[in-house]
């Protein structure tokens, strides 16, 4: 078979196509989307010789299994997991050659939540507004993977990446999120700001690609009432009426009406995307 594609054999809990996102359309109400752990997506692409922005698969918790119809170089990274080809162990975090018709199985995450599967040539679904990412909030891009779906692959790059043994920081036991206060910190009491900076929160199991939800002491408002909807950024710490902070991840809405008490540094968000429910979270205000 010459056709460059992979067939989905096991979709897993939630496996989506992701690249580096759909920027430049927020004013039309379009979320940015893209890999939640962009460093891992970039790295698996480099391992198979792709440009860093090629589309990869992002798994959630329990991996996925696919059967390429062609020989293809793959790399699995992000959350560490078992990797097998036709049942035989293969290496995680490095380029692996998979033959046509072989079964590539990406196992459950041993640590962290989201593994990334890069294919030589990238997943070549049609881009929507310049991106191949699945956007779960507004439904743009390809649907989440389902058994039997066949995804096209691009032409395999001629040269392999120069990365042999990439540094791969494991998911931390405690999620430390550095935040810059504002823009709406003045909508909260001084005690609430103190609570945010000093008390421990936990990652809620209702977290998803839209936001990392937390459990912990509620943050009390100083200003009651509604905030007119305003533009939201990646990493915004929005506080809904229940007072529990929500950290906006890639599929966050472009605008929102709950006050943003602080914004997490972009560099800390990959760890947030890999934090399993129950992980301790600390918010650390920095300038």
């Amino acid at each position: 078979m010459t056709d460059r594609a992979v067939a989905v054999v096991r979709a897993g809990a939630l496996t989506t196509v992701q690249d580096l996102g759909r920027t430049g359309h927020a004013h039309l109400g379009v979320p940015r989307s893209g890999a939640l752990d962009p460093g891992a997506a970039r790295l698996v692409n480099r391992l198979v010789g792709n440009p860093e922005g090629a589309a990869v698969l992002e798994t959630t918790v329990d991996g996925c299994a696919v059967r390429p119809r062609c020989a293809v170089t793959v790399a699995v990274g992000g959350a560490p997991c078992s990797v097998t080809v036709d049942g035989r162990p293969a290496a995680w975090g490095t380029a692996v050659r998979v033959g046509p018709g072989a079964l590539l199985e990406v196992g459950a995450a041993v640590r962290g939540l989201r593994s990334y599967v890069g294919f030589g040539g990238g997943v070549a679904v049609d881009p929507v507004l310049g991106s191949r990412s699945t956007d779960l909030l507004s439904g743009l891009g390809p649907a989440p993977l389902a058994v039997g779906v066949v995804l096209p692959l691009g032409e395999e790059p001629s040269a392999r990446g120069a990365v042999d043994s990439p540094p791969w920081p494991g998911p931390p036991d405690e999620l430390v999120l550095r935040v810059r206060l504002g823009p709406r910190d003045d909508w909260f009491t001084g005690a609430a700001l103190q609570t945010l900076a000093t008390r421990a929160y936990r990652v809620s199991s209702s977290s998803n690609r839209i936001g990392l939800r937390t459990e912990g002491p509620p943050l009390e408002r100083a200003v009651p009432g509604e905030l007119p909807s305003e533009g939201m950024v990646l990493g915004a710490v929005q506080v809904p009426p229940d007072g529990r902070p929500v950290v906006f991840l890639a599929d966050h809405p472009a605008t929102g009406g709950y006050p943003v008490i602080a914004v997490v540094r972009e560099g800390d968000l990959a760890a947030a995307a890999q934090a399993v429910p129950g992980t301790a979270v600390r918010f650390v205000p920095v300038r």
Partner: peptide, 15 residues
């Protein structure tokens, strides 16, 4: 500026 996002009483400039 990567994104200019107007809203009811605000304009966000991101990137």
């Amino acid at each position: 500026v990567r994104e200019i996002v107007p809203a009811a009483r605000t304009v966000l400039l991101d990137g």
